[in-house]
Design a protein around this nucleic acid. Structure first.
Length: 453
RNA sequence: GAGGGUGUAGCUCAGUGGUAGAGCUCCGGAUUGUGGCUCCGGUGGUCGAGGGUUCAAUCCCCUUCACUCUCCCCA
């Protein structure tokens, strides 16, 4: 008998139970913070009509879309009617356009679901992964306040996620566009290419990037490159307010520049009022976040002690969410956390605590003649809201403790003949090696005290 | 889409032209009511698959599959 090799397709993240517990915790924290800021949950189907998904078509995304058909449906040479979503923004656009009349604007939604991309397998890169998005969508216009609120969400969320110090890097697309126009680089396409090059400074080094920009196909003048670098490095060694002041000194009259600069000033002003400490924020003129549809503020969040992970949360402002589906103009601002990649990388870096089981107590079986008591104790603990497991298999007591320890169960409840006589139970805290005794009728309170204390 | 790398035990990897080892894991034990440490013992591999050279291939050659990395792009 030959077996089929049990394996998953590459590019999916399948976890062991305790890892899953840790991952779930992370998602819970994200959800809790999103809700605290008044975002409402939305879920959309994994599949959408291909027509709906591939509106903007072309380029990288289309190449990565999984098309779907069921076994009876496929007519040869016909593009399947359905496809798997590759992000949550396009489904959101469809959702908002479809339910426009029933939604309250500004519409705030959060969405934590999996998306699918036909990626080449690579470390930390998935074909199926979680995105945790929030967006605020306005009708016709959307107050700049929301652009400030976004970093406030990030700040509160990542504080609670507790991955150490982090920095929210911010930039403004209009400021960039204005500056490029000032440099004489008018075409958006060309700006994108230059920005992409600039984005590689960390990887390739400043000199290399400058060389590239001077050479074909960019062929920028050395004066232009000089100015560009000077601009991009404005924030280096400066506080955010100093950077803003330094930008003012350029004295550029390009309208987009002025608008971007003024918006940045307002956003930083409001962020201070929202109690987001300035050292968690950084006006970084060099970040440009790929996605072309951003038109205003852009955000990237980096963990200070793990810069290699890259941005763990990014997003920005866009002019019109659902132009393909409705006449209404729907500007928005939002962010996305790639939870699967983030979790995977944190696990890789040893930053995920995998020791904690959601099961808190293992009721051990010291004495077979007390089996009925163990059943009652187990039921009582569960009734008291404590996640409890009964080690019905019994066996050597040592092995029972070992089983609890290995499973990451913190407490072992022990009751042998002597406890039975005294009407008490012994609770061993395996994480500390301490033992406590509680009266049978006070054990729930006692254990809860240990869990919370 | 372009270019590299690697396939030997559950995991991480050694190794030799004469059909294989280590560490970790796992299982059992070290006086029968106390885990993690230590010690002892044990399970476990058609050496990715197919073909070729050879008396003989895990090792050499060819093919293939799988995995993986970089670029691209992104979460």
């Amino acid at each position: 008998m030959s077996f089929i090799q049990p394996r998953t397709m590459p590019g999916v993240m399948e976890l062991l139970p305790l890892e899953q517990v840790a991952f779930q915790r992370m998602l819970d924290t994200i959800r809790r913070n999103y809700e605290r800021f008044g975002f409402l949950p939305v879920e959309t189907p994994v599949m959408e009509f291909t027509k709906v998904l591939l509106t903007k078509s072309g380029g990288e995304t289309e190449r990565q879309v999984y098309l779907v058909h069921h076994s009876g449906s496929l007519k040869q040479d016909e593009k399947p009617e359905l496809a798997l979503r590759f992000d949550l923004t396009v489904p959101l656009a469809r959702y908002v356009a479809e339910h426009e009349r029933k939604l309250n604007f500004p519409f705030r939604r959060y969405q934590i679901q999996r998306v699918y991309r036909g990626e080449r397998a690579q470390r930390g890169r998935f074909r199926e992964f979680y995105q945790c998005d929030i967006d605020v969508i306005g009708k016709d216009k959307l107050d700049l306040y929301y652009d400030a609120e976004i970093p406030a969400v990030i700040y509160n969320l990542f504080r609670e996620l507790n991955f150490g110090k982090f920095t929210i890097h911010m930039n403004h697309r209009k400021l960039l566009a204005g500056f490029f126009a000032y440099l004489g680089i008018e075409e958006a396409e060309q700006q994108m290419l230059v920005l992409r090059e600039v984005d590689k400074i960390d990887k390739r080094g400043r000199e290399k990037v400058m060389e590239t920009l001077l050479a074909e196909p960019f062929s920028l003048s050395s004066a232009t490159v000089e100015k560009l670098m000077q601009f991009l490095e404005t924030g280096n060694g400066r506080s955010n307010s100093e950077t803003l002041a330094a930008l003012r000194e350029w004295d550029i009259q390009e309208p987009r520049w002025l608008e971007g600069l003024s918006e940045l000033e307002q956003v930083f002003h409001q962020l201070a009022r929202l109690d987001v400490p300035d050292d968690y924020l950084r006006l970084n003129l060099a970040i440009a976040r790929g996605l072309d549809y951003y038109t205003g503020m852009v955000y990237e969040t980096l963990l200070d002690d793990h810069l290699k992970l890259g941005s763990v949360c990014s997003g920005g402002r866009y002019e019109n969410l659902a132009g393909h589906y409705t006449k209404s103009k729907l500007p928005g601002v939002g962010i996305s956390i790639g939870a699967s990649r983030l979790f995977f990388q944190l696990m890789d870096a040893g930053l995920v605590n995998l020791g904690q089981n959601i099961v808190k107590v293992l009721v051990t079986q010291m004495d077979d003649s007390l089996a009925d008591d163990y059943l009652q104790i187990t039921a009582a603990l569960r009734a008291g809201g404590i996640n409890t497991l009964l080690h019905v298999e019994g066996g050597k007591f040592q092995k029972q403790l070992k089983a609890a320890d290995r499973a990451g169960i913190r407490f072992a409840l022990i009751m042998g003949g002597s406890e039975k006589e005294q009407g008490v139970v012994t609770v061993k805290d395996l994480s500390k090696g301490e033992q406590h005794q509680f009266a049978r009728d006070a054990m729930v309170e006692g254990i809860n005290g240990l869990i919370n204390g």
